[in-house]
Deep mutational scan, measured.
Amino acid sequence: MASQGTKRSYEQMETDGERQNATEIRASVGKMIDGIGRFYIQMCTELKLSDYEGRLIQNSLTIERMVLSAFDERRNKYLEEHPSAGKDPKKTGGPIYKRVDRKWMRELVLYDKEEIRRIWRQANNGDDATAGLTHMMIWHSNLNDTTYQRTRALVRTGMDPRMCSLMQGSTLPRRSGAAGAAVKGVGTMVMELIRMIKRGINDRNFWRGENGRKTRSAYERMCNILKGKFQTAAQRAMMDQVRESRNPGNAEIEDLIFLARSALILRGSVAHKSCLPACVYGPAVASGYDFEKEGYSLVGIDPFKLLQNSQVYSLIRPNENPAHKSQLVWMACNSAAFEDLRVLSFIRGTKVSPRGKLSTRGVQIASNENMDAMESSTLELRSRYWAIRTRSGGNTNQQRASAGQISVQPAFSVQRNLPFDKPTIMAAFTGNTEGRTSDMRAEIIRMMEGAKPEEMSFQGRGVFELSDERAANPIVPSFDMSNEGSYFFGDNAEEYDN
């Protein structure tokens, strides 16, 4: 993207840094990872977990959730003011799984939030270390993106479920800051804005008074975040219109849905970061690795190297396929839920299948599930090659597409044709070009129609051997075009429920 120079890199967003050079960025990201790792080690000690239990991804998720809940100030305040039966607002906890007599047992633990905050700050040299908290939120978000298709949420806001490739980060909490905003897809931002506008339509006082002023500035800020994701002048001009509207209503909703559809071809720039579970960072720190000293990046080879040398386990339900569970977590670790499966298959070195073909449910185990038949197995999170994460949407291309997802959002900077089903997408653009945004709409449609099938995206960008740390010898991959490109292809993934 041309304006790259004016933006802070995501590592800076990730670490609240002012302008830093590459070495400083690597050190501050490393410091953040160190903090998460030290916190995780301490929690495993508190909970008396064995090494194996500490490497269980379900335990990692519970521990991450506990610290996120302990620092969720708004919710904590709300819980104190609106006490609900049987919930102690000062405590947080969740299921911890232990191996007892050759069987997995679930144990519900409860801790004072104050105590968890103390352990977290102690692991982070006394700081609140917001960057580390956001990092864990993005890992949870990436896992949700890989596990669930947001059909219901899309339909509720009037969008087409086939636009799911635009929904990265749709389950990120509001408090995820600049680093969170960077990884949100165009569809996620559109959905947040539509929800806001709908509230304004239904509630006369939404934009009024002292609160209304705050609401208005939040609305304009979200519009600017979305505008910054678009790469064409016409899309940005249309966002200006939406932002400046005196009284946002149905016309703005129409414009936003139009823009979301246009992003299936004229893709937005959305950041991709490899955020790993805390149970990967903990053992690495415990083994003596100093992330701050060595430096770390979320968008280069580092996460690949770390996963190459990590042992992570997962509980497996009786009829689940461990290899499929591994694929789910591998995609989440690489922030690749909406990437082209052919690119992923090449990088991973084994075939990556669409969601609907995987015999696996989510990673988390519900409290009512029976533990008797639970097994555990090693997650295979290694890769054959590594590639640089991208934040450009890439230019655009036609490809055989599917009944489910009709476009992709690249996660890796790797040369390819970008699949999208042009006739299906263009069919949504018939007729409606009147109104105050008509010239911009016409211009956007013209650009979409001009998108050429034979153009290559990320020209000359390749993948790298894991021994090639400096990215000196790019390998331009070859793809098996007979395979499906979309992950949520004609899909039956479970729906995400809060």
Rank of each mutant, 00 (worst) to 15 (best):
Ala2Met: 10
Ser3Met: 01
Thr6Asn: 03
Lys7Ala: 11
Lys7Cys: 11
Ser9Leu: 00
Ser9Tyr: 02
Tyr10Thr: 00
Tyr10Ala: 02
Thr15Lys: 07
Gly17Ala: 05
Arg19Glu: 10
Ser28Glu: 00
Lys31Phe: 09
Met32Glu: 07
Ile33Glu: 06
Ile36Asp: 00
Phe39Gly: 04
Phe39Leu: 09
Tyr40Cys: 14
Glu46Thr: 02
Tyr52Ala: 15
Ile63Tyr: 01
Met66Asn: 14
Met66His: 07
Ala70Lys: 09
Asp72Thr: 12
Arg74Leu: 14
Asn76Ile: 02
Lys77Ala: 03
Tyr78Lys: 05
Glu80Pro: 04
Glu80Phe: 01
Asp88His: 12
Pro89Cys: 00
Lys91Cys: 05
Pro95Tyr: 04
Tyr97His: 12
Lys98Thr: 00
Asp101Asn: 03
Arg102Val: 03
Arg106Pro: 01
Val109Phe: 01
Tyr111Trp: 01
Lys113Phe: 10
Glu114Tyr: 04
Ile116Gly: 01
Ile119Trp: 06
Trp120Tyr: 08
Gln122Lys: 01
Asn124Pro: 03
Asn124Asp: 14
Asn124Gly: 09
Asp128Thr: 13
His135Tyr: 06
Ile138Glu: 10
Ser141Met: 15
Gln149Asn: 04
Thr151Ile: 13
Thr151Gly: 04
Pro161Trp: 08
Arg174Trp: 14
Arg174Asp: 10
Ser176Asp: 14
Ala178Ser: 06
Ala178Asp: 07
Ala179Phe: 13
Val183His: 07
Lys184Asp: 08
Thr188Leu: 07
Val190Ile: 14
Met196Glu: 13
Gly200Arg: 08
Ile201Met: 01
Arg204Gly: 14
Arg208Asp: 10
Asn211Pro: 14
Arg213Trp: 05
Ala218Tyr: 09
Glu220Gly: 13
Glu220Asn: 11
Glu220Trp: 11
Asn224Pro: 10
Ile225Glu: 12
Leu226Asn: 11
Lys227Asp: 11
Lys227Ala: 11
Gly228Tyr: 10
Met239Ser: 04
Val242Lys: 04
Glu244Asn: 15
Ser245Glu: 08
Arg246Val: 08
Asn250Gly: 03
Ile253Asn: 06
Leu256Thr: 05
Leu256Cys: 13
Leu259Gln: 01
Leu266Asp: 10
Ala271Asn: 09
Lys273Met: 09
Pro277Asp: 07
Val280Cys: 03
Ala284Ile: 07
Gly288Ser: 04
Phe291Pro: 12
Glu294Asn: 02
Gly295Glu: 05
Gly295Met: 10
Ser297Asp: 13
Gly300Val: 06
Asp302Lys: 05
Pro303His: 02
Lys305Gln: 14
Leu307Asp: 06
Val312Ile: 08
Ser314Cys: 15
Ile316Trp: 06
Lys325Val: 11
Leu328Gly: 09
Val329Phe: 07
Met331Gly: 02
Ala336Ser: 04
Leu341Phe: 12
Leu344Ala: 13
Arg348Trp: 08
Thr350Lys: 06
Lys357Ser: 04
Arg361Tyr: 08
Gly362Thr: 08
Ser367Asp: 07
Met371Phe: 07
Ala373Thr: 04
Glu375Pro: 07
Ser377Glu: 13
Glu380Lys: 07
Arg384Lys: 15
Ala387Val: 14
Thr396Pro: 15
Gln398Leu: 03
Ala401Cys: 00
Gly404Val: 05
Ser407Ala: 15
Gln415Ser: 14
Thr424Ala: 03
Ala427Val: 06
Phe429Gly: 06
Gly435Thr: 08
Arg436Pro: 10
Arg436Ser: 13
Arg436His: 03
Asp439Trp: 07
Arg441Ile: 11
Arg441Asp: 08
Ala442Asp: 08
Ala442Cys: 00
Lys452Tyr: 01
Phe458His: 03
Gly460Leu: 05
Gly460Pro: 09
Ala471Gly: 01
Ala472Trp: 12
Asp480Ala: 01
Asp480Val: 06
Ser482Asp: 10
Glu484Val: 12
Glu484Ala: 02
Ser486Thr: 03
Ala493Tyr: 10
Glu495Leu: 04
Asp497Ile: 15
Asn498Cys: 05
